[in-house]
């Protein structure tokens, strides 16, 4: 029950964008799930979001920065009238490839902040990702919990849906100015080709977001490209990603 309450704090049923929120991480036991401890004003002030102004309800934001920082920025943006949409599609386990404990803590603290806010049902979305979701060159070893994950075009509203709901601009917050991750580029190119303006902002910078051009990734729009994007990752039977790497195997784990 507490899991559902926490999830619905982040993904209120009345919000247009909640159907895209991922419940996987919320389904786990989160420490101090419904406590009143929240992210402090000091922490929220540290999240520089000047690039996100003004909120004319025509801009969606993608926070592709380290997970706990993304949560912090999402709460700061919620203060400015954006609806956070948590897309963490992973689970936790012992000896995990990605430590999600800080993300889980940030989600419980951030929930207390969100409970004190009134976000309009038609507020534009701020999609929350973890830029460390699939670290390059770090394959988990046998016995480790492989909870690396990716985002798919199916995890986001289509460009058509965004346009129909008044969204004309996408701002992607990233670390530095590095190009969008391969999985995310499949989504950004679709939006770009639908006529949405894609702009990039940098973490810890108040500089205005500048236009970026995303190039088409390999296997774009092929029916089976999703299977290839997920190849080598391990699914969790409860949903999302995450499973122990077997001792005698290093193969992939997808079965459709």
């Amino acid at each position: 029950m507490a899991n559902r309450i926490l999830f619905e704090t982040w993904a209120p049923p009345a919000s247009l964008w909640s159907r895209w929120a991922k419940p996987v991480l919320f389904a786990e036991t989160l420490h101090g799930m419904l406590s009143n401890r929240s992210l402090s004003e000091k922490e929220l002030d540290a999240a520089k979001t000047a690039w996100a102004l003004p909120n004319n309800n025509d801009t969606a934001i993608v926070l592709d920065v380290p997970g706990e920082t993304a949560v912090l920025y999402a709460v700061a943006l919620a203060n400015k009238g954006y609806q956070p949409v948590a897309l963490f599609n992973t689970t936790s386990g012992s000896r995990a490839a990605i430590d999600v404990s800080k993300i889980k803590k940030a989600l419980t603290l951030g929930a207390a902040n969100l409970r004190g806010m009134t976000i309009p049902a038609k507020a534009p979305p701020a999609f929350i990702l973890d830029s460390e979701r699939k670290p390059q060159g770090r394959s988990p070893k046998p016995g480790q919990y492989d909870n690396r994950w990716v985002v798919l075009p199916q995890d986001f509203p289509s460009g058509r849906f965004l346009m129909n709901h008044g969204i004309r601009n996408i701002v992607i917050l990233r670390v530095g100015t590095k190009p969008a991750a391969d999985d995310l580029s499949h989504i950004l190119v679709r939006w770009q080709e639908r006529g949405l303006r894609i702009r990039g902002a940098s973490l810890n910078s108040n500089a205005a977001a500048g236009d970026i051009r995303v190039t088409r990734p390999n296997l774009f729009r092929l029916a089976f490209s999703r299977l290839l994007v997920m190849f080598g990752l391990r699914r969790n039977s409860a949903g999302g990603f995450g499973a122990v790497v077997p001792e005698e195997s290093s193969g992939g784990g997808y079965y459709g």
Binding site: N3, R4, F7, P23, V24, F26, A27, S237, A238, G239
Partner: peptide
């Protein structure tokens, strides 16, 4: 899998 996937999903 039908049984296991979280009902929140």
């Amino acid at each position: 899998i039908i049984h296991r996937v979280n009902p929140l999903a």
